[in-house]
Write a protein that binds this DNA or RNA. Structure first.
Length: 430
RNA sequence: GCGACUAUAGUUUAGUGGUAAAACUCCGGUUUGUGGUACCGGUAUCGAGGGUUCAAUUCCCUCUAGUCGCCCCA
């Protein structure tokens, strides 16, 4: 033990993608791409490296977050660099950079790899890929509808069912603000109540009620009535005059009746303390093992403040590949397959490896994927390996074949064989 | 930052105060040009260090790593 061996484990919180994992990821990404394009969204991307200021400049709270929960370091020229923890500042920067020449509303999407330095747990790693979809440059409610329809469609395209495997929950930030204003809550109390509301699903009923009473005192009953509303019509009466109530009510009604996409009013959907200003929504995994949000998003009034220029409203959502995979696995919705070559060429002796490679390359030029087993194992092992990989065809190359230039094409699934020149055999496969 | 739990073969897991068992995988063989079956064989300083003990993989402590919660979640 003179040397310490290196571990084969990946760095903490990040993943290796072995072929079977990559196949699943490709399936997820393909579905994301297809659905985004189905809705006319255009793809953009940027580097995973950003100057740290991009994340710090949003305030003290953000500065703390950058310091404690991002990968931030100095480059060789002493510039502070951060591995991007989210895509929104990047896309805001890009949109602001070309604000004068872009045609709005803009429909953009991206699947960035994001990094966060935090404690790992189920569904939360230090690295993940996140589908980000946004519509920029409009405050029309149609954008909300389109966005939620897109989110819903993604799940439909994975073979999931709204109401069985997942559910869409919506709320309105304005409704919460109206409630707090009417109850004349102090800012601290309002913040504490929002924090509690966010945790409601995780807490016991009694425990939650006690916590609200302790935090909000006299206003507790009204707040509880609001947070326990199972339908939007159950919110306290005075809120129903509010314009945000009417907007949300119509939205829920349209989604159900015009687009057959039921959404559920859920006053506990808050989406943290970020830039959202209007309708917010989440898609929940209904599997008992995963009970959590897989997708979240909402309306924002102005994303590009930092970069000057005109106000740019928009609406967007994000969803991660880790929770997506957990969702698909838990509900048995995975259909991804590892992609094997169509043909495997097996020389009987390593002396014939080059001849086998020539044969394989002829098939490749005809558009048939082909690999050569150049290993030193016995024929039986090579064929067993090909079978296990789910290769469709095999050709064995021996001295006879090389001399006669005629080959035997073996169908691995049926066990049948066909004889002929390479040209003849190619036409059999194509 | 706080807490709980776990660590045995490549993987998933048994098990015991007297140096370990199975399944699958992998490698090799029965079968020197025809597979998926069957049979045989091979692969573990029981996470690291220390302590208790005649004896520790087993009990205790420390460390490390991982998992799962809390906090946070842009």
């Amino acid at each position: 033990m003179s040397k310490k061996e290196l571990t084969t484990d990946p760095y903490k919180g990040v993943r290796d993608f072995y072929p079977e994992d990559k196949a699943i990821q490709n399936y997820i990404f393909d579905t994301w791409h297809t659905t985004a394009r189905q809705f006319g969204f255009e793809e953009y991307d940027a580097s995973i490296l950003e100057p740290s200021e991009l994340y710090k400049s949003k305030g003290v709270q953000n500065e703390e977050m950058v310091n404690e929960q991002t990968y931030t370091f100095k480059d060789r020229s002493d510039r502070e660099v951060t591995l991007r923890p989210e895509m929104t500042p990047t896309v805001a920067r890009m949109v602001a950079g070309r604000a004068k020449e872009l045609y709005f509303p803009l429909r953009w999407y991206s699947i960035p790899n994001l990094f966060r330095y935090e404690r790992t747990q189920r569904g939360r790693l230090r690295e993940h890929w996140q589908l980000n979809c946004d519509i920029f440059g409009t405050d029309d409610i149609t954008a909300e509808i389109e966005m939620v329809l897109l989110a819903n469609q993604i799940f439909l395209n994975f073979g999931a069912e709204n109401g069985t495997h997942f559910e869409i929950c919506v709320n309105h930030r304005g409704l919460l603000d109206a409630l707090y204003k009417d109850l004349e809550l102090s800012e601290e109390t309002a913040t504490a109540v929002t924090r509690l509301a966010d945790k409601m699903q995780k807490m016991e009923v009694n425990e939650f009620e006690a916590a609200v009473k302790e935090t909000a005192a006299r206003a507790a009953d009204t707040i509880l009535k609001f947070l326990r509303a199972k339908s939007i019509t159950e919110v306290p009466e005075f809120l129903k005059e509010n314009s945000t109530y009417l907007e949300l009510e119509k939205f829920i009604d349209d989604m159900e009746n015009k687009f057959a996409c039921p959404v559920k009013f859920d006053p506990s959907v808050i989406r943290g303390f970020d830039y959202y200003t209007g309708i917010v929504f989440e898609i929940f995994d209904l599997h008992p093992e995963n009970k959590r949000a897989m997708l979240g998003g909402g309306r924002y009034e102005n994303l590009t403040t930092l970069f000057g220029g005109d106000k740019l409203p928009g609406i967007g959502f994000g969803m991660g590949d880790v929770t997506m995979r957990d969702f698909l696995e838990s509900h048995n919705l995975l259909t991804a397959n590892i992609t094997a070559p169509t043909l495997i060429v097996i020389p009987t002796d390593t002396e014939l490896n080059i001849d086998a490679e020539v044969v394989a390359n002829t098939f490749r030029q005809a558009g048939i994927s082909a690999a050569v087993d150049i290993g030193e194992r016995k024929m039986a092992k090579k064929l067993a390996a090909a079978d296990k990989q789910m290769v469709e065809y095999a050709i064995i190359i021996g001295d006879d074949e090389v001399k006669s230039q005629t080959y035997v094409l073996k169908n691995m699934t049926e066990g049948s064989e066909e004889c002929g020149t390479l040209e003849e055999l190619i036409s059999k496969i194509v």
